[in-house]
Design a binder for these strands. Structure first.
Lengths: 337, 337
DNA sequence: TCGACTCATGTAGACGTCTACATGGCTGGT
DNA sequence: ACCAGCCATGTAGACGTCTACATGAGTCGA
């Protein structure tokens, strides 16, 4: 943060320079640029020539200064290096872009403190809206956003009584949906593999929902790292009596599946494996993976739309619940006797 | 009719409002904020109180206006929904962030026209640097960047004679590396599966390098979509005489691998499969996937570092070549017989 | 007690663009 | 030939923050 050298602003031409060359005032140049029909043909041509001669490029910051708009939205995500978030951002960016907004991305690494810090950074960069993942956030983040009067939207999580508007799915329902699929197949002893509970309210509420389920079935919970290795490791420590593994992420499920292939365990004949996410690879593995399809792309699109509409018209942002569905594929079946 | 509007315009307090409440001028407030030791203790306290009372939040755009800096860098990528780009952006964001810069992301969908359009958008948002994927770009993009005097850096691709600085790996070398691994194992008929050639100079140069290879071996080229389905489809149309499949992307390789598992073809006993990328899943599949490890994370870090250094000190950005390496795992072996 | 000096603060732009209003020349209808 | 009205353009801020310089009050040493 030392060297604040201003070599940056090497004499870039301004509309005043253009005006000087064209023999008009800056106001006329501005008009020629923004409302060409209010400027005479001859003048317009001289201005066009002057723009080329001077190499004029508009200064976006000055524009933003007078319009009070930056047409920029910020998104805070735990990581970019995970399909679910990049898929979300991909859809988000697409919809923001068609509405004329740009996307600034900041990575929190799942750390609430870093989240606050990054949020401040985004605000100090002039974003007009802030998108976060999940519902539980540092007080300071919410306070900052409120102070700046910029809208805050939560994603990945829908809960009717949230104090900030949220566009997402109900994690509890989705988890129950998954469990019910396995239960309907006749499984009664099910291993539940999930990533770290800490600082992840999505995982937390999925687990909570399962624990609240009436108990004709027994769940064996296993927390591991949220990656392929975690899935593999879960299989290595599998309680012998389970007939199915419910992984609360497709990455975990695939890690488990690969390990089972290695061990020569037949899926689903000897053991059912179920995922959560519906990652791109899930419909191609062998066997293909039964999973919960989360409305990630739709979530990105809807979030962007809600924000843009709010920024354009002032409409308040309303929470939206999107539906998850079970995608039945080959990796689950009734337990063998 | 004295207008003493304490809270004006968009209702956001300015430094002047703060000054009015604290009974000082805007200059003093500015100093209290930026050089606290040049303001008397008493005044500082009154200003702090006034800031809270007015709910003052600094206006980033005005700051950018006077400093001429936005501390923002833009990146153009074909998609976010692909591990390789999100991994790159993840590393890029991390390093930019530690240098105090923010990252604006724009998606081109591999379309050169859209790329130009998005580049303009980024420039009109005030980014101080522009990062693109690959070396071949619409003339207009390069011209725009030059006119705006903002630095342009290419990634994913290193070529000594490039006219724009590039931080990346040599795709030709990497492709040859892969082929040499298979050739060293004794393969002579190799299927090469790659994604669309059009608008993707990385794929194009990998294929070109293979085609230029001296010919004790025969390559059978197959272009398919750059996803799991593409890998699967390639297996379905496999020339019977090949003993190995070289996929120019791990996604393709995994698609192929899964299909082969389905067909009951033993990898690598009956057929070797080699990937390209070293995606996270590759070391967990069964068999684990031999692949080319591309320096994606390092590329993100180095790119960010080069840009930041340039913006901070004016050092010109120099091209950097990063090395790819072969990662030998289980999916390749000498051909049987 | 006076001048030199320091310190805290105010004043007046500047940054680049936009826009409400002013100006002055021209047209055309009567 | 006169005035209304219009057209093309200029003038003068405004946006919010920063900073070089000016100002005035207080301090200190001789």
């Amino acid at each position: 943060m030392e060297s604040k050298t201003n070599f940056r602003r090497k004499g870039r031409a301004t509309i005043i320079d253009v005006g000087r060359v064209a023999g008009v005032s800056d106001a006329t140049v501005s008009r020629a640029l923004n409302k060409p029909d209010t400027v005479s043909e001859a003048t317009r041509q001289r201005i066009d020539a002057a723009i080329i001669e001077t190499g004029y490029v508009p200064n976006p910051v000055a524009k933003a200064m007078v319009s009070g708009r930056t047409y920029t939205v910020g998104a805070l995500v735990p990581t970019l290096d995970h399909a679910i978030f990049s898929k979300f951002l991909n859809a988000l960016e697409a919809e923001l872009s068609t509405n004329g907004y740009g996307l600034v991305v900041a990575v929190t690494k799942g750390d609430p403190l870093r989240e606050v810090e990054k949020a401040k950074k985004l605000l100090s960069m002039g974003v007009e809206g802030l998108i976060v993942s999940g519902l539980s956030h540092n007080e300071e983040l919410v306070a900052q956003a409120r102070r700046s009067t910029i809208p805050l939207v939560a994603t990945s999580y829908f809960q009717p009584d949230s104090h900030i508007p949220a566009v997402g799915y109900d994690n509890e329902t989705a988890a129950v949906l998954a469990a019910e699929h396995l239960i309907a197949l006749g499984h009664e002893k099910i291993a539940v593999v999930h990533g770290p509970i800490r600082d992840n309210d999505r995982t937390r509420s999925r687990v909570r929902a399962l624990k609240a389920l009436p108990q004709p079935v027994t769940f064996f919970y296993h927390e591991s790292s949220l990656d392929y290795a975690g899935g593999r490791e879960a299989v290595e420590n599998l309680p012998p009596e389970v007939t199915a593994i419910l992984c609360l992420s497709d990455v975990l499920a695939m890690g488990a599946l690969f390990k089972l292939q290695d061990l020569g365990v037949k899926v689903p004949d000897q053991l059912s494996v179920m995922g959560f996410d519906n990652m791109a690879a899930s419909e191609f593995t062998s066997p293909t993976l039964t999973t919960i399809k989360l409305p990630i792309t739709e979530m990105g699109t809807r979030t962007a739309r809600a924000i843009c509409e709010h920024l354009n018209t002032g409409t308040p942002i309303e929470s939206e619940e999107l539906q998850s569905t079970v995608v039945v594929r080959q990796s689950t079946a009734s337990p063998s006797r």
